[in-house]
Design a protein around this nucleic acid. Structure first.
Lengths: 129, 129
DNA sequence: ACAATAAGTTACCAAATGGTTACCTTTAAC
DNA sequence: GTTAAAGGTAACCATTTGGTAACTTATTGT
């Protein structure tokens, strides 16, 4: 019997996965970084997400310290703006490195046109994160 | 309405998450890299995984081209050895970078002693992946 | 008086994921 | 001839995750 044991619940990668593996989270971080930072604006760029799930994912990103949520106190219909925290911005950089790895090692699963666009301008404003 | 739309099913990070987000997969890659590469041997290092799930995760890692499974044709009780493919080895390097990021940016969620060990010898043979 | 807009919430549902326990197959050793 | 070891399967269950569709609240413009 080994003296060292591994436990998935204590695994650092388990915690990291929890951070990014919400279905829409990498896309949300990317959009907020690029100024797509309001609820209905984001929803317009992600037509297939439901409002319920969009709310959930945003709240989780906020709870994990990746996004900051700011309610702008204007009298009109409430306006809410999201922006990246430092941790969130730093995670965005790491995600770009992960995407680079994917472009090299998962070529077969990534559409040709995306690969081509990526080669020209890495974190382009197209479908990637 | 924006001309660009984002779809989580086409997202590169979704594919990447599928690669690593099996609960035990990062640990398995790490163990195999360190020569813990047989079914019951691995099971000894991961006492809380069930055989069913261990089989499943190994099979998925194999299907994703990260591990190679080799049945050694000896007459005795069948012996099976796993080893990393090139893709798997390259993913292990990326995971080490991800863990470095976690050690910097998720300090509060990572036990002190692990942080200390990590500072001395990064990819140590202790609970980390 | 009424519709529209921003940003959600509520109730309910389906699929995926990991887990438990018991069982299987082949060969060698006692 | 039964047992042990290696590497699994099979049947079944609970939780988590994302999804649908309808409803909400406050204010402003017509």
């Amino acid at each position: 019997m080994p003296t060292v044991c591994f436990n998935a619940d204590l695994c650092v990668m388990t915690k990291f996965s929890a951070l990014i593996s919400g279905k829409w989270k990498p896309i949300l971080l990317y959009l907020v970084q690029h100024g797509i930072n309001r609820f209905n604006l984001m929803h317009g760029y992600m037509p297939t997400i439901s409002k319920k799930v969009l709310t959930e994912q945003l709240r989780e990103l906020e709870a994990d310290g990746l996004l900051h949520r700011e309610e702008i106190k204007v009298k009109a219909p409430k306006v809410v703006v999201y922006h990246l925290t430092e941790k969130g911005a730093s995670l965005r950089k790491l995600i770009d490195e992960i995407i680079s790895w994917c472009m090299e090692h998962m070529k077969d699963e990534i559409p040709q046109d995306l690969l081509a666009i990526f080669r020209q301008s890495p974190p382009a404003f197209v479908q990637a994160p």
